[in-house]
Design a protein around this nucleic acid. Structure first.
Lengths: 186, 186
DNA sequence: ACCTGAACACCGTTCAAGT
DNA sequence: ACCTGAACACCGTTCAAGT
């Protein structure tokens, strides 16, 4: 007599995603996930290989969503506006799923997810940056933009920016400064 | 008959620091630290409050070293050279103690250490940035520089930069681009 | 086929007992 | 005054037994 399935891989991953954002990576225990989907912890091993594998699924899922968000923001209009749109989309996603966003790019955490994002976003970003600075230096220029954006978002989520001032204004300032530097002759 | 001390807080923190860099945060177990200093795990609680407190000591120690390194690199010469020196010192420190550096700025990890670094480095950085861009916009300008540097270092340690190209050249490119943007009239 | 309780390994932490 | 083994709580994981 086969026992009916009480849950599914999708439900497990979904519960893990919500737990990650609500209580952080340390709170993402197998028992908490099991309780959220209505089974006992050992049953989760019928759905995912182990905790690391579950976390990998959550992060790769978030990475795929980030790629989609990024692709949806890609346009082929005025390069300055296009660059801003890509950066705003990235920051907006980081606010929707801050913990997953941090884990995608965390050192040593999930190389595959970071590689996936890098591969699937680099074409759009390089095109826009090349439109501003030229083909030749588009790679180091794009790296400068990405480093700034990831650093800014990381600081924002870490609660840096304690010397006062407007954080949104600092974000705009950074975009404007980089854009101006990439294409000094408007 | 008092039992002679077999270790000290300094030795415990030092062993923890080495373990952190060698095996990462997850490998930094109380048992591994105890073995490194030659006692059993329960004895560590005579030296540090608990594992979180030990990690806090390690990170604050690294933060103090980073502040010293930064202060030693501060000069009052040509502002562009001064800014480069501050950034090079930060990157050099991140390579000496990559795990500790990441933990100082990790979201949610150690707010005190990050605050300490921010407070004790902001004066030097703001002065140099103000010399380039002017007093009025020195705060958002400094935030742009810091965001770029932390993002670049984070990407470097995470093993991003997989599309080829010279990472050191990208670092120089970023410094030059930011410097040029901060002071467009050389 | 999946679910479960029981068991095991591992880690952080406490504590009574030793010196 | 510090050190230790034993014990406890908690977590990840395995597995035999149930349906």
């Amino acid at each position: 007599v086969p026992a009916p399935a009480q849950t599914s891989t999708a439900a497990v991953v979904s519960a893990a995603r919500e737990l990650l954002e609500r209580v952080g990576p340390d709170g993402l225990t197998m028992q908490a996930v099991a309780e959220a989907v209505g089974v006992r912890a050992p049953s989760l091993y019928k759905r995912v290989p182990d905790r690391a594998g579950l976390l990998r699924l959550v992060i790769e899922d978030a990475a795929a969503e980030l790629v989609d968000t990024f692709a949806a923001a890609a346009a082929t209009g005025e390069p300055r506006d296009d660059l801003r749109a890509l950066l705003e989309a990235t920051r907006a996603f980081s606010r929707q799923r801050p913990k997953a966003f941090a884990l995608i790019f965390a050192p040593g955490a999930q190389p595959e997810a970071a590689r996936q994002v890098a591969e699937q976003t680099s074409t759009d970003l390089l095109r826009v940056v090349a439109a501003l600075v030229g083909q030749e230096q588009s790679l180091p220029a794009a790296r400068t933009v990405v480093a700034w954006a990831l650093g800014f978002i990381s600081m924002e989520q870490a609660g840096a920016f304690r010397l006062g001032g407007d954080v949104d204004a600092a974000w705009d300032y950074g975009i404007n400064l980089l854009t101006r530097a990439l294409d000094p002759a408007p």
